[in-house]
Simulated assay, not measured.
Amino acid sequence: MDISGLISALVVGIVIGALGRLVLPGRQQVGVVWTIVVGIVAALIGSGIAGAVGVADTKGFDWIELIIQVALAAVGVGALERARAGGRVRR
């Protein structure tokens, strides 16, 4: 992977991670760096799932792939939030 691929992954991670946080209700106590990491992982896994299902390469914008990626990012941010909360009870 060259430098443009890394920059693209970072930008996609930021966008997907931010969208994943936006669809979750309430305030998340997950930092920006973890949001980007979750977004990058969600983008990669979501692209793989979209490719396996056959919706990754469509004419125009790949809305279904984006929805899969954002849903995975929301799940990832939510899981990270629960893991960080540990035994604490939120009120």
Rank of each mutant, 00 (worst) to 15 (best):
T58C: 03
R27M: 06
K59A: 15
A79S: 13
D57W: 14
R84C: 01
V11L: 11
G17R: 00
G60Y: 07
V55Y: 03
L44F: 13
E65P: 05
A43D: 11
A56Q: 13
G87F: 12
I45R: 08
G78N: 10
G48H: 08
V75Q: 05
G17Q: 04
A52C: 06
M1L: 12
A42S: 11
A74N: 09
A71K: 00
I45P: 07
G76Y: 03
V41M: 09
V12E: 09
S8M: 04
S47T: 12
A56L: 12
W63M: 14
G51Y: 04
V32S: 06
I7H: 02
I36H: 00
K59F: 15
V77A: 05
I64E: 15
T58I: 14
A71R: 00
V32H: 06
A56S: 15
L19H: 01
S8K: 13
G48Q: 07
L6C: 06
S8C: 05
G48C: 10
V70S: 01
V89G: 04
Q69L: 02
L72M: 01
I3V: 04
I40P: 09
I45H: 08
L10I: 13
A79F: 05
I67S: 09
L66G: 04
R21D: 14
V12H: 06
V30W: 11
G51A: 03
L22G: 12
A79W: 08
L24E: 07
A74T: 03
L22H: 04
V38C: 10
G60L: 05
R27T: 10
W63A: 06
V37A: 10
A9H: 12
V30Q: 07
G60M: 06
A79R: 09
A73W: 00
A18E: 11
I45Y: 05
G17K: 09
W34A: 11
A74S: 03
I64C: 01
L6N: 11
S47N: 15
A9Q: 06
Q28A: 11
A52R: 04
L80I: 02
D2R: 07
R82Y: 01
A43E: 03
K59M: 08
V32A: 12
A50Y: 08
W63I: 03
R88A: 14
A79K: 01
D62Q: 06
G46S: 02
V23D: 02
F61P: 00
G20H: 07
I16R: 01
F61D: 08
I67C: 03
I68M: 04
V77E: 09
T58L: 11
R21E: 10
G26M: 10
V33M: 11
V23I: 13
I7A: 12
V70L: 13
A43I: 07
S8G: 14
L6T: 01
D57T: 12
Q28S: 10
V37S: 07
V12K: 12
G51H: 02
I7L: 15
A52K: 03
G26Q: 08
